[in-house]
Computed example of a mutant assay.
Amino acid sequence: MEEIINNPTFGILISIVMFEIGLYINKKTKLAIMHPLLISIGLIIGVLLIFDIPLDSYEKGGDMISYLLGPATVILAVPLYKQFHLFKQNKKPILIGIIVGVLTTITSVFALCKVFSYEQELLYTLIPKSITTPIGIEVANSIGGIPSITVVAIVLTGITGAIIAPIILKLFRINDKVAIGIAIGTSSHAVGTSKAMEMGEIEGAMSGLSIGLAGIITVLFSSLFVRILELFM
């Protein structure tokens, strides 16, 4: 049994099985809160706790899945390529929207950390919460954050965005497909983009575009923000 648990295949297999269960529950309940990723995370944690399986054993396979996140994100370029003419037609509002979204994320994290008196290290950890995991981990490392907590924040942000995006869009009567894609991609990265793709090809393409641009802009602004913060400390 120990040989099976310590095999990388174990972590990969349990991740796939739990995600498939999450998909099944999501389709049956049709509830936004029953997001497959959220369900699979809970199930995996439950299995590890109930059977007393060390996290290190799971991560031998789980880390392989994390490694593939970067290459998998590249596939989002396919719908973008098909809708690239929309980017050329709307490049100014798209770039402004993404920059404003990134700055809003950074400033809101700073404001909340101040209100709740969080330590500076946690502030640096949460700054990259709205960008895709591979970039977010590197940003957290470079500015002095805690990458493991950053990953948790990124996952929760993505799931939250995917769940509440349709509600927000309906509440504020946002119907423009380009605006929808940019908003979702900038605020909730790849997990949100999967929801945007369900809405339509244009929404998915614009959301996929936002992931890359928001990541680059966050890298630039986060470093600048940290330097400014250090001057006033």
Rank of each mutant, 00 (worst) to 15 (best):
T193I: 10
I4C: 11
G46F: 13
M34Y: 13
P134H: 06
D52H: 14
L37A: 12
T133G: 07
L86W: 00
C113M: 14
G212E: 04
I96F: 04
G101C: 07
Q89E: 15
E203I: 09
E230T: 15
L231D: 15
N90R: 11
V47Q: 05
M34P: 05
G11A: 12
M18D: 11
P54W: 03
G22Q: 02
P128Q: 01
T105K: 05
A111Y: 07
I167N: 13
K82T: 08
P36C: 01
P36M: 05
L37S: 03
T157C: 13
I202M: 02
L112V: 08
I180F: 01
I65C: 11
A111M: 13
L169R: 15
M34N: 10
Q89W: 11
H35Q: 13
Q89G: 14
S188A: 14
G61Q: 09
Y124T: 03
G42D: 01
I75V: 15
K60R: 11
G46P: 00
I33A: 14
P71L: 12
L31K: 15
A111F: 10
M206S: 08
F221P: 04
I182Q: 10
I167D: 14
E203N: 02
K195R: 14
I25E: 06
L69A: 07
K88P: 00
E119M: 02
P93D: 02
L156I: 07
E203D: 06
I45V: 15
F232L: 12
L48R: 04
I137V: 11
I167S: 05
S148C: 13
Q120S: 12
E121N: 13
K82Q: 12
P147A: 05
G215W: 00
I154F: 05
P54S: 06
I184N: 05
G208R: 01
G192N: 10
E138Q: 09
L38Q: 08
M199H: 06
F10R: 04
A179S: 15
H35F: 08
A205M: 07
K28P: 01
A179W: 00
Y124G: 08
G185E: 07
I163F: 02
I164Q: 00
E203H: 03
I202G: 08
L38R: 00
Q83P: 12
I65L: 13
E59I: 04
K28M: 10
S207W: 01
M1A: 14
